[in-house]
Design a protein around this nucleic acid. Structure first.
Length: 158
DNA sequence: GCCAACGTTGGC
DNA sequence: GCCAACGTTGGC
């Protein structure tokens, strides 16, 4: 029984790591380290599988919005930045034998015909139920439905 | 830069 | 286990 691939919106601040940065990486892949929220970690650990689609979202940006698509190319492994004292994501409670935090690998970037801004997402009534648009939503990893992805692609095509 | 909303921490 | 204080996220 094969599992139906899922779709995940993953937030990143483009000043730190952008869609263009992913495209420029050797192998066009990147370990998605630095996730320090248990719910987001559990999504990575329990639900993300190779082949899942990633909606690559730029947060805290001018403008914020969907910058492209990508895929999960590596499943969750211990996040080594957690026990790296020089990392901004250092966590004194994480150890190699008790990792606490995990990271998946995101790759296979697929550019979209156009950036889809947060304002445009908010202006689409059929996306009113999207998790990203919920008031106060701060999770850096969110599930996306097939219908929501279809709409986003439609908007990117204009 | 402001600040609302949320998660985490720690005193009790 | 409660909850106030604090830190962070992220839109604006």
């Amino acid at each position: 029984m094969t599992r139906r691939p899922r779709i995940w919106l993953m937030k990143t601040e483009p000043d730190v790591f952008s869609f263009a940065d992913l495209c420029a990486r050797p192998g066009r892949r990147e370990l998605w380290d630095g996730v320090r929220n248990y719910q987001a970690r559990n999504f990575m650990r329990d639900d993300m599988r190779v082949g899942d689609t990633v909606v690559f979202y730029h947060s805290n940006a001018e403008p914020s919005g969907v910058a492209g698509l990508a895929s999960i190319v590596g499943e969750a492994v211990p996040d080594p930045s957690a026990w790296d004292p020089s990392s901004p994501y250092f966590d004194a409670l994480a150890k190699p034998d008790e990792p606490r935090w995990l990271a998946v690998t995101v790759g296979n970037p697929q550019p979209l015909p156009a950036f889809v801004s947060l304002a445009a997402l908010r202006a689409e009534p059929r996306l009113a139920g999207m998790a990203l648009l919920r008031r106060g939503q701060r999770l850096s990893i969110l599930p996306v439905s097939d219908d929501e992805l279809s709409l986003i692609l439609e908007m990117a095509r204009g």
